[in-house]
Design a binder for these strands. Structure first.
Length: 177
DNA sequence: TAGGCCATCTGGTCCT
DNA sequence: AGGACCAGATGGCCTA
């Protein structure tokens, strides 16, 4: 990941360099959208030079604006993905799994989490015999609702199966690796 | 070397 | 108009 980080840094530097120099730029990643590469002199022969200059200035401004927006948008997207990754990391930390020294992939994290939740739900229901104490707010039926929901999605006899599934899964993940 | 996983960029779409 | 979200494309790193 070092090299990766370096690459990212380089890109960022390129970005900020672009931003800091008022100079528009020879951008590393060129065409933000196809539209700005064609600067066709579609004016008529009669167009005055002042009009042409105006048009040029205007299109340059538009291009700068588009580029700026792209860079900002990229930055926001990066931040968004970082947040997403933080959430994945937080999730990894609460899911028990074997070979904790090796990071779970995203797909593994999601799959394990899903089965872990199913297993916990099954366990809770087994322990309480389908009757849960009222949660705050006086929803005395909440345990029953949970039970019904679980039955609806997993069936009655599947709690054992869930547990089995989860435990085999946490062992199978990374087993060979 | 191929395949898996990941980070980033990008354009499109939807929402405010 | 601008931001959030999403999915596809691309390229780099790592491992079997």
């Amino acid at each position: 990941m070092k090299a990766k980080a370096k690459t990212r840094k380089q890109r960022l530097q390129a970005d900020t360099a672009d931003a800091s120099q008022g100079e528009p730029p020879v951008r590393p990643q060129e065409p933000v959208n196809g539209s700005d590469c064609q600067e066709k002199p579609r004016g008529s022969l009669k167009e005055s030079s002042s009009m042409a200059t105006k048009r040029k200035k205007h299109s340059t401004k538009v291009r700068e604006h588009t580029t700026t927006r792209r860079i900002e948008s990229n930055e926001r997207e990066r931040q968004r993905m970082h947040k997403l990754n933080n959430a994945f990391q937080a999730l990894r930390e609460v899911i028990p799994h074997v070979r904790a020294e090796k990071k779970l992939s995203k797909i593994e994290t999601l799959t394990l989490a899903k089965n872990y939740i199913n297993t916990l739900t099954a366990t809770v229901l087994n322990m309480s015999n389908g009757i849960l104490p009222a949660v705050e707010g006086g929803a005395s039926a909440s345990g029953g609702k949970l039970f019904q929901h679980y039955q609806k999605h997993n069936g009655d006899d599947e709690s054992e199966e869930q547990l089995q599934k989860y435990s085999t899964q946490i062992h199978s993940f990374r087993q060979g690796s």
